[in-house]
Design a protein around this nucleic acid. Structure first.
Length: 826
RNA sequence: GCCGAAGUGGCGGAAUUGGCAGACGCAGCAGACUCAAAAUCUGCCGUGGUAGCCCCACGUGCCGGUUCGAGUCCGGCCUUCGGCACCA
């Protein structure tokens, strides 16, 4: 055998796998299916270590499940619409498509150099017509079901990106992509009605037991369900009613004012009703709207308001409550109007104190009596007895709540209501490089869908890209001008494209039937392969992509296109790859390039290190010395096979196990313990790091025989064959090479995963620990299967135990079979 | 502020059901091979006492508890990281 040289071995096998198309997958009803999926990347140009980690995890799983006998679907593609391509066009004058496709070519080459077992025939590119045609088709499906609609609203706008953003894409009041401040704009935009599914999206989180709990909790918080009462307050001066929502109906007798959002639709009418204050109110509204999103939504910022001199009537007791226009009430949550109950809500307390508004106590704790003049803050505990609340006086909170809501419903001015924090998904983007929204506007017919046989609405090629200008699509006369499909008159196309998160909300379904040109996917195929059995990706998608995909799956299910409720059965959120304790980034200069590492040590070493260095779901600090260690291990594997090459080839698959020496029996024991542990770690627990460390122990045990040329050939063969098979999912090239080198037929990756011999994992003799009062005092070897009494006797017979218990009374003895005897003495 | 996760040698980490704390790897030290170095192989490697071993004490963020026995369970803190944050 020659020296281990990853560069030549890896190239050789990669082209062989590619030429022979060994990772091609077809439906097969005879075998159980397994769908392993890594989140597809954005084609930024190069793979980074996060990708390497993601794909290494997925590849081990796909290869392991294949060896276990599953029919494994393991596809890859590119989330290839999006801003960076357009920015490249603006900056360097390259076409977004050219930029994108050349990046894809480069990244695919890098993926191939990693030795990943993808079925490339199923590749999905979201920017290709054969894909976005169906993205548009699905949009139209949503439209026909009333789940896509256009409305005017105060939306999040990023000036740098020149487009609107979804709520989920605003982080701390800043754009998720470019970090610039987000402002509010009043625009007419397309939305998807995800709120229709809020309840199911929340409820079905219970079905996702294979997801990390924290992701489920994050989604739960994001959806933010609350129950309460919505009721109407009359405003005699306007001849109107204002609806308010509260989760504390028990406090309604304490209302002393009504707070409105600055954007509340009745604000202008209130100004008209009270001309004296109109100007001041309008100024206040303007000021509030000029505040940035961060200022307005921070809990630290000052709560301001202006009294309008117009009053609303509390329907419960007829009391008047002045209407205040404020900067803190959100226009798009609840009704945009909030009751002010100073004594039982801390924010209302501060607001009322600041503006000298009345406070009424309507809730008294059981153990003390509250007095307004002694109180310095609101009483917010949800415990006590109602006072000042008419017929509800003396009730506890729970019954008062029900009674008050019953009253509102009976008298017809209010209703129980569930509210969600989740808002509808704003999907229009004023950008070029995305799937055009397939809608036409006609002066006579209004909004008209582009007929299905005219899909896709294609992106025009002859457009200009300029910094800061309006969308290139809106400037393209040839694109905008069209005829109305209904009446044939001149009409205009929608020039907005879809949020790229739409494209990635269904790609995992397309993989099951990627070449279908009649439908997005065939029902039978999608139901065979999907849902995804194991999804692997970064935690950054905990809400965005994972919530949207769940929504899409449910809508497509309701449309009869598939028959499951959730797209991803199990989810694994991998940790980040760090260097020197912080995230790799160009600005910090701590980037380690996968290409360099693969060039120097080979893909097998890179994969092995990244899987060995830390548990998959934890952050991993990159270590150059650690990589050396992984490389060293592979060289050790290579050499030990080389040392025993002759025995392995001479050995038989069936041999006389009874003839083994005690040392050889021990090696065989280690082998089968390793098999058991590795199988368990890969299949049940995703403990790749400990699976590898166990294999290292096996190799260490094998090395004990390195100078022993009398090692039983059958055993040498058994150990080597199983060692190679166990390593195969992790390091596919070196194992394939060793497999061939030893003269075995076919690919190691098409072998059956080895079974362990239960008998060999047991031992005749075990070492147990002798404890006195819980402290280890000695260790002895005893037969594995002796009785409790025999164990106790063996412990008592032990010389050290006798020395240390001399003159003391044995109170108790605890025996744990095969582990320990604890003697409690006084 | 609310919710969640984590805290173990010089470092990454292991300990699956409450049962030998520190597997495996990195770094370090020593030896073998070598003219020498690299590579490789072997051994040592938590702290302190004793200074060779044996042995003893201490030790999993801190304080307390349950238990024959706690890194693991319970109560109370501290620190770090992540998510949400005027949601009425």
């Amino acid at each position: 055998m020659e020296k281990y040289s990853p560069q030549s071995i890896e190239k050789k096998w990669q082209s062989k796998w590619l030429d022979e198309n060994v990772y091609k997958t077809e439906m097969d009803e005879k075998r159980p299916k397994y769908y392993a999926l890594e989140m597809f990347p954005y084609p930024s140009g190069n793979l980074h270590m996060g990708h390497v980690r993601n794909y290494s995890i997925g590849d081990v799983l796909a290869r392991f499940k294949t060896m276990e006998g599953y029919n494994v679907l393991h596809p890859m593609g590119f989330d290839s619409f999006g801003m960076p391509a357009e920015n490249a066009a603006i900056k360097h004058g390259v076409k977004p498509s050219d930029w994108t496709y050349s990046n894809i070519d480069n990244m695919k080459r890098q993926q191939r150099e990693m030795g990943l077992s993808y079925d490339w025939d199923r590749e999905v590119l979201t920017c290709r017509q054969d894909y976005y045609r169906w993205t548009q088709w699905i949009f139209q499906l949503f439209y026909k079901k009333g789940l896509a609609y256009k409305k005017k609203a105060y939306v999040n706008w990023c000036d740098t990106c020149g487009t609107v953003l979804a709520n989920e894409q605003v982080e701390d009041g800043k754009c998720w992509r470019c970090d610039s401040e987000v402002v509010k704009k009043d625009l007419s935009q397309w939305f998807l009605k995800i709120t229709d599914y809020a309840d199911e999206l929340l409820k079905d989180l219970d079905k996702l037991q294979g997801w990390p709990e924290r992701v489920r909790i994050m989604q739960e918080n994001w959806i933010g369900r609350s129950e309460g009462l919505e009721f109407e307050l009359e405003v005699p001066a306007l001849g109107e009613k204002i609806a308010a929502y509260t989760t504390r109906p028990d406090t309604v007798y304490g209302i002393t004012f009504l707070a409105l959002a600055a954007e509340h639709p009745l604000v202008e009418k209130i100004c008209e009703a009270n001309p004296e204050k109109a100007e001041a109110i309008r100024d206040f509204v303007k000021e509030a709207q000029n505040q940035s999103d961060i200022e307005r939504t921070s809990s630290e910022s000052e709560k301001k308001g202006i009294g309008t001199g117009v009053y609303a009537v509390n329907p419960f007791n007829g009391n008047e409550a002045e209407i205040w226009v404020t900067n803190y009430v959100l226009a798009d949550y609840g009704t945009g109007a909030v009751i002010g109950v100073p004594s039982e809500d801390q924010r209302d307390w501060m607001f009322a104190t600041k503006y000298n508004l009345k406070k009424i106590i309507t809730l008294q704790p059981k153990d003390r009596e509250l007095k307004l003049e002694e109180m310095t803050e609101a009483y917010v505990d949800k415990a006590g007895i109602l006072v000042n609340s008419a017929e509800f006086n003396g009730m506890d909170i729970k019954s008062a709540m029900q009674g008050i809501m019953d009253k509102a419903e009976k008298e017809g001015f209010g209703k129980r209501r569930v509210n969600y924090r989740l808002r509808d998904w704003l999907i229009s983007r004023q950008r070029y490089w995305g799937a055009p929204i397939p809608v036409i506007y006609c002066d006579d017919c209004g909004e008209v869908l582009v007929p299905e046989d005219q899909l896709p609405v294609q992106l025009p090629e002859d457009v200009k890209f300029e910094q800061g200008s309006v969308s290139p699509l809106a400037q393209s006369e040839a694109f905008v001008n069209c005829t109305c499909p209904k009446c044939g008159k001149p009409a205009r196309r929608e020039t907005d494209t879809m949020d790229t998160f739409i494209c990635s909300s269904w790609y995992y379904l397309r993989y099951t039937d990627p070449h279908n040109d009649k439908m997005p996917f065939d029902k039978e195929k999608v139901n065979y392969w999907a849902p995804v059995d194991q999804y692997i990706g970064g935690i950054e998608h905990a809400i965005l992509h994972l919530l949207y995909s769940r929504f899409f799956t449910k809508v497509l299910r309701d449309a009869g296109m598939l028959s499951f409720d959730e797209p991803f059965k199990r989810l694994l959120t991998q940790g980040m790859v760090l260097k020197d304790g912080s995230k790799m980034s160009k600005s910090k200069g701590n980037v380690v390039s996968p290409e360099e590492i693969i060039g120097k040590y080979g893909a097998d070493t890179a994969r092995l290190f990244i899987l060995f260095a830390a548990p998959v779901d934890r952050d991993l600090d990159w270590s150059d010395e650690g990589v050396e260690g992984s490389f060293r291990f592979l060289k050790r594997v290579w050499r030990i096979i080389e040392i025993f090459e002759n025995q392995i080839k001479a050995g038989a698959d069936e041999y006389d196990i009874k003839a083994l020496t005690p040392e050889e029996k021990e090696l065989r024991h280690v082998l089968h313990v390793t098999l058991k542990k590795v199988t368990d770690d890969l299949g049940e627990r995703f403990n790749f790091n400990t699976a590898i460390s166990t294999i290292m122990e096996l190799v260490n045990a094998f090395y004990k025989f390195q100078n022993n040329d009398k090692l039983n050939p059958g055993l040498a063969r058994e150990v080597s064959v199983n060692l190679i098979k166990m390593l195969a999912p992790f390091v596919p090239h070196i194992t394939e090479e060793l497999w061939a080198e030893l003269g075995f037929e076919g690919s190691v990756h098409q072998q059956k995963w080895p079974k362990y011999d239960e008998a060999a994992t047991q031992k005749d003799e075990v070492e147990i620990v002798l404890q006195i009062n819980g402290k280890v005092r000695d260790r002895i070897m005893i037969p594995a299967n002796i009785s409790k009494e025999e164990m106790e006797q063996a412990a008592k017979d032990n010389q050290r135990v006798q020395e240390l218990t001399e003159g003391k009374t044995i109170v108790k003895m605890i025996c744990v079979p095969k582990k320990l005897v604890n003697i409690v003495v006084k």
